[in-house]
Amino acid sequence: MQNLSGKSIAIVATNGFEQSELEVPLKTLRDAGATVHVVSLQAGEIKGWDKKDWGRAVSVDKTVDAVSASDYDAIVLPGGQINPDLLRVETKVLDLIKAFWAQKKVVAAVCHAPWLLVETGIVKGRKVTSYHSIKTDVVNAGGLWEDSEVVSDQGLVTSRKPDDLPAFCNKIAEEILEGLHVKRAA
């Protein structure tokens, strides 16, 4: 993993995030030197989903209302079935994701989190991957779906499942270090 000292990353999630899809990027990106905040709808803790049952709680560092895309270099969106489904109806979350995209910053989503990219319209015309069960949703929204471990398209980083998290985290770091993705349209 490349050195991310001086970089800031927001991981946006709520209850029902897939445990490893929040915890692995959180640890990996912090270990690389980045400042990483868990951002959620409310202060306190959010509870993960660990494969087939409720998992561990994770402390929330900041609420969505208290952050701005200008505070960070990237946004990471963990999956799980519950988490992105709850977040995709939250206007303030969708607006935050769109702000990262408009500012040409890294937007990274794993597993079911590309549902949020569908909801924001970001997926349209972009190469992406996701958990296989939402492929049709991604394609119907205009995404160019690939069955690949990690797909990157001008700062949009997507991954399929927890097994792909090491490659996902490495690609996030690479994209952050490339800087703003000025060639893409907002």
Rank of each mutant, 00 (worst) to 15 (best):
M1C: 05
M1S: 13
Q2F: 05
Q2W: 02
S5W: 02
V12G: 14
T14Q: 04
N15T: 06
Q19D: 11
E23C: 10
V24Y: 15
K27C: 04
K27H: 09
T28C: 08
R30L: 00
R30Q: 15
A32Q: 14
A34L: 04
H37A: 06
H37L: 09
Q42E: 14
A43I: 01
G44W: 14
E45F: 04
I46D: 02
I46F: 02
K47A: 12
G48K: 03
W49N: 10
K51C: 02
K52A: 05
W54N: 09
W54R: 03
G55C: 09
V60C: 08
K62G: 00
T63R: 09
V64K: 10
D65Y: 00
S68F: 10
S68M: 12
D71I: 09
Y72S: 11
Y72C: 13
V76G: 03
V76R: 13
V76F: 13
G79C: 06
G80D: 12
I82K: 03
I82P: 01
D85E: 10
D85M: 00
L86W: 01
V89S: 08
V89R: 07
T91S: 14
K92F: 01
L94Y: 14
A102R: 12
A102N: 14
A102V: 06
A108W: 13
A108T: 12
C111L: 04
P114N: 08
W115F: 02
V118G: 07
V123A: 15
K124D: 13
G125C: 10
R126V: 04
V128H: 00
T129R: 02
T129W: 05
Y131H: 13
Y131E: 07
Y131S: 02
S133G: 03
N140V: 02
G143E: 09
L144M: 12
S148H: 07
E149R: 06
V151F: 00
S152F: 01
D153I: 11
G155D: 07
V157I: 15
R160M: 11
K161H: 01
P162E: 03
D163P: 00
P166R: 03
A167D: 10
A167N: 09
F168S: 01
C169E: 01
K171W: 00
E174S: 07
E178W: 00
H181Q: 14
H181E: 08
H181M: 08
